[in-house]
Structures are given as C-alpha cells and as structure tokens.
Design a protein around this nucleic acid. Structure first.
Lengths: 156, 156
DNA sequence: TAGATACCGTACCAATTTAGTTCTGTATAT
DNA sequence: ATATACAGAACTAAATTGGTACGGTATCTA
C-alpha cells in the first residue's frame, strides 16, 4: 500500500506528543500516554535520537526531548529516520536500482513526482501537526481538494 | 519505505506504454517493449482490466487498450487498482483499524494529509506522464520545490 | 469447424519486510 | 551504592511482495 508503515506513524505520534509537553518525558510515560507498548516506543525513541531529532538524557530522571523547536522539525525528517528516503518509486530514490531505467518511459517524471512529494513533506512540520490543519486550494478536476503543483507539457 | 511497490510502478509504466501506442497490444508485445517478464506483465494487465482501466480483447489478434483517453485516467486510479487505497496512514484509509484512534493526537491531521496526497494523484493523469513534466511553484522554507497545499493554524 | 492465439482466474511459493520482543551494557541522579 | 533509564544488538513471527504455474474460455483465421 502507498502509505506509511505503522511504526513510522507511531513515531510521528510520539514526536507530536513530545512536542506538546515541553518537560522531559521518559519512554514509559510516552508509552502510557500513547497507549503503545513500551518496547516499541523505546525502539522508536532510540531511532529518533540516533538521527538527532531527539535528545536523550540517561539515568534517573532521564528521558527525551526535541532537539529543535517543533516548527523546525519536518515530517520528512521523521519519515526518513524511521523508514528511509521518501520517494514515489524506487528508481527516483536509488538510481541504478532498476534494469529498465535506460528505456523506461516514466523514469524522469517519477523523479519529478518524488521531488514534489518530498518538498511537501519537508514543508510540513511538527508545529503544523500540533494543531488542526485544513486543506487549502481547490482542486480543478474533482471535488477533493488539491495538491501537488505539477505542470506538464499539457497533453490534450 | 514510503513509496510505490515495484509492481505498481511497473503497472504505471505499462499503462503509459499502452497510452503511447494507440493500436491494440498483447501481453507479449508489452513484455518485450517494457523488458518486464511476461507472467508479471500478464498479471498486471489482468488487474488493470479487472477494474476497468483497460479493455481486453480475447482470441487471436487480441490484446489490451485503454478504456478512456489518457488525460481521463488518473495515476490515483492505477495505484488504487494495484495496491489498494491511497493514504498517508492506515487510520486515514480504514477508520477503526487502530486501537489508539480515540486518543490519537494526529489522527485528524493525518486524514488531511491523506486527502491532499490523494487529490494530487487524482489530478495527475496518464496524459501528464506521456511527456516531460516540470515542478511548478516555489517552496518557501527550503530550496526544494513545493508541494502540497496545506494550511495549519500556524504555530510560531 | 478445427486450431491457434491470447486473455481469465486462481492458486501457489520464495524472499523480503515489518512489527514486536528480549537481553546485556552503560550513563546519571539521589 | 543503587535504582533509574537509555544504548545497542540480536532475534522471531507474521504479513506483504514479487514472481510463477496452470487449467479454462473466448475469438479470430483458415
């Protein structure tokens, strides 16, 4: 399915939860608050600390806190930390991974879509997630709101 | 990884390839043109016919053709056909799938992000993929081009 | 009308990925 | 000292993914 892994989803929930409580919180507190099992929470927090999105404090009264202000931490970074590089297709992330690349009719456009997607998620921050968001802009073709700004040569 | 399955990617390649050649093409021709193994191509074409994106013609001189004009077939439909509903997180696709829903701090915003993503892909068609696309619009916060139009209450 | 062609449907399997756990080690506060 | 809490690695089970196989049916051509 074209969607986030559960663990990544949990990671975003945890990061948002940490953002909402400025004081230091340990894995157990966060597990209780999020209703997620402690070992899982622990694993996620470790990964997020590892890439520098969280700062960890060991020992008694230890815990985790954000390394930056919420509006300086993008959702893209969280995703990248927990499930690797964001992209629309494999070839747009890892060039050379696909045998068909030289002859592929959509490779170049996949890359463009990937960049749009990445840009969108880099632009979205924990600060945004902390309060209700709304869709902006109207979608021309359907009645569901838009979306990624792409422009094509324009087949008609 | 937050990206399309390989098979879905292949499906998009095949659809684009069919769009570029108006005449009827059979699975073997498409396999040869795309360099993908015949059984895989066959499986994908069947799935795409099943949901009505392709029209199949049996018998000698049979093959597949698009059921609609390229600019009337969205990338979202192709993805949906091959790997199920598009969404940012599981809960934004299948409500009730996650135990934490009632207390989850980001559920509502996940849904908004999902709708933006879906809107973007519904708005992108095979017609667009048939020729070189470009990114439009500038991203305010980083130097990578933008992206999904979302508006938040605006934490500062 | 016989036969070749090509799609249909289903079932299957191996490899990978994902989700979740366990355990030993190390740093820190009291 | 000792309890607390993170660090890191290794491990397992389940689910998903990618790819294959095969008997059945429709249709065109000769």
């Amino acid at each position: 399915m074209f969607r986030l892994n559960k663990l990544t989803d949990y990671g975003i929930v945890l990061m948002t939860s940490i953002a909402q409580h400025p004081e230091l919180q340990n894995a157990r507190d966060l597990s209780a608050a999020s209703q997620l099992p402690l070992p899982t929470v622990s694993k996620l927090l470790k990964a997020l600390s590892h890439v520098g999105l969280l700062v960890s404090h060991r020992g008694s009264k230890g815990g985790y806190s954000l390394s930056r202000r919420p509006n300086q931490i993008s959702v893209a970074e969280i995703i990248d930390a927990l499930e690797g590089p964001i992209g629309f297709t494999e070839c747009s992330v890892a060039a050379g991974s696909c045998d068909l690349e030289p002859s592929c009719v959509v490779r170049r456009n996949s890359k463009v879509i990937s960049l749009a997607l990445l840009g969108a998620l880099e632009n979205l921050t924990l600060g945004d997630l902390m309060q209700p968001m709304e869709l902006a802009g109207l979608k021309p073709r359907s009645n569901i709101v838009s979306s990624i700004n792409l422009i094509s040569g324009g087949v008609q």
